[in-house]
Nucleic acid binder design. Structure first.
Ligand SMILES: NC(=O)c1ccc[n+]([C@@H]2O[C@H](COP(=O)([O-])OP(=O)(O)OC[C@H]3O[C@@H](n4cnc5c(N)ncnc54)[C@H](O)[C@@H]3O)[C@@H](O)[C@H]2O)c1
Ligand SMILES: NC(=O)c1ccc[n+]([C@@H]2O[C@H](COP(=O)([O-])OP(=O)(O)OC[C@H]3O[C@@H](n4cnc5c(N)ncnc54)[C@H](O)[C@@H]3O)[C@@H](O)[C@H]2O)c1
Lengths: 204, 204
DNA sequence: TTTTATTTGTGCTCACATTCACAAACACAA
DNA sequence: TTGTGTTTGTGAATGTGAGCACAAATAAAA
């Protein structure tokens, strides 16, 4: 395997593959071919093989991919082999829905802190976490939390982001609409739900 | 302007452009250049001009794009010039957060019905809507609702989808993880929040 | 051992989105 | 009217991801 730049698109598909492999792990499958996996995931086998090959040789020709080992290797690549802690900023409607979501744990992701600026909400329990004051964001570095989920109103998003960056956050999942400036050293993913829904009518 | 196939990527950016133009509309701006808009949205002017040019000539050289007219034209393209109704399936944590979200209306999108199968939830009010039984999905066609937001557990997603398709739904925003089979005539957009968050640690 | 059937890994091709470059169109000042 | 400075619209160049084809590797049967 020569060195090749790994496309972002490949990285984005890895969680899908991981979910597939994890499911097969639960089903006690030993191996799976790219073809069978592709059918399950609704994409094509070439893509899966190509994507995985960026990271080396995973499978055995004539056999397929060893389920357990490959799942573990993808976790390793995505740094999901150890639990990753994330902070949630904004204990609003969307935020509380996310905290209650059990689906993150299968990726070894954990929402480990909740922050808000509303005095009414600070101190209240959501799930097994207590909402903390936004003033305490600076403690994130010490608590080794480098990921944050941003679920505050758009007006507050930029200023909160700057506090997060100061607090050492390196990855940001942003739900607020509008453009958010972050330093190049910080990876940001935007999820604009209203925009997504707006696309659908076009295809009617 | 010759006919050219319009890339999906262009369509996906239109809501962003629309949000930009709408904001400028509120600010009573008459015109805006691709450069100024690009700065606001955090992307490059070439892209904006190219994207808009797929749909004809929007602006005036030496001047820029007329804010009001262009906003209206993008709404027209996205079929957002009339209010588009969507049904929400699954009155759970995520679903209720979405119903309460006021941001859809600026795109002329309206959640106009909520369905669930839980008898405990059916009949309850969420916002100004009453949760209906999933059995009543077939009424969607008569009510001219062609869009649906799927916020049910993954196990239920495929069967609910099939009911939606039968009920005449043509666009689907799916929040459940895993692969969903839909006919080619139906446009589906998947939002897998856990996968999105899983990507971040890779870049740490 | 040989043959046949699988299946991976990857160089190559192709398609297509992005970016560039520039002519055409416009405003405005001199 | 002429010149200067903008800005759009678009053909062309560029870059890159997806799809393809096939050799290499493996298993299992003959
Ligand atoms: N609810 C949805 O379904 C939905 C859909 C699409 C987008 N969004 C976006 O997600 C974000 C959150 O939406 P929501 O519906 O949960 O809003 P919300 O108003 O219910 O919650 C926002 C929370 O952020 C807190 N907050 C405000 N300013 C803050 C600050 N400076 N620091 C810390 N906390 C602060 C508020 O106290 C509140 O608890 C918004 O940007 C919204 O546009 C939400
Ligand atoms: N909550 C989150 O933050 C979050 C995050 C990522 C993904 N998701 C996904 O979104 C979906 C919904 O999540 P949630 O947290 O709101 O779940 P939830 O359990 O809170 O709500 C699901 C709702 O769907 C209803 N339902 C179940 N089967 C149904 C059926 N056959 N027909 C109609 N309604 C049915 C249930 O009664 C319930 O009200 C799930 O697929 C989940 O994986 C949610």
């Amino acid at each position: 395997m020569k060195y090749r730049r790994i496309p972002d698109e490949t990285i984005q598909r890895l969680p899908m593959y991981l979910r597939g492999f994890s499911l097969l792990e639960d089903e006690k499958e030993e191996t799976v071919s790219s073809r069978r996996l592709a059918v399950r995931l609704g994409l094509n086998p070439h893509q899966i093989r190509k994507d995985l090959s960026y990271f080396g040789s995973f499978g055995r020709r004539g056999v397929g991919y060893p389920v357990r080992a490959t799942a573990q290797r993808i976790r390793r690549i995505l740094k999901l082999d150890k639990t990753q802690k994330a902070a949630l900023i904004g204990a609003g409607r969307l935020g509380t829905a996310l905290v209650a979501y059990p689906g993150f744990s299968s990726f070894n992701l954990e929402i480990a802190a909740i922050f808000d600026k509303d005095p009414q909400k600070i101190g209240k329990k959501i799930g097994h976490l207590r909402v903390e004051s936004i003033e305490r964001l600076s403690g994130l570095r010490k608590r080794k939390i480098q990921l944050a989920i941003l679920a505050v109103p758009a007006e507050a998003a930029q200023s909160v982001t700057e506090k997060l960056v100061k607090a050492g956050v390196k990855g940001l999942l942003n739900f607020s609409p509008g453009h958010l400036k972050v330093p190049a050293s910080v990876k940001k993913i935007d999820i604009d739900l209203a925009s997504q829904l707006s696309i659908l009518p076009y295809y009617l």
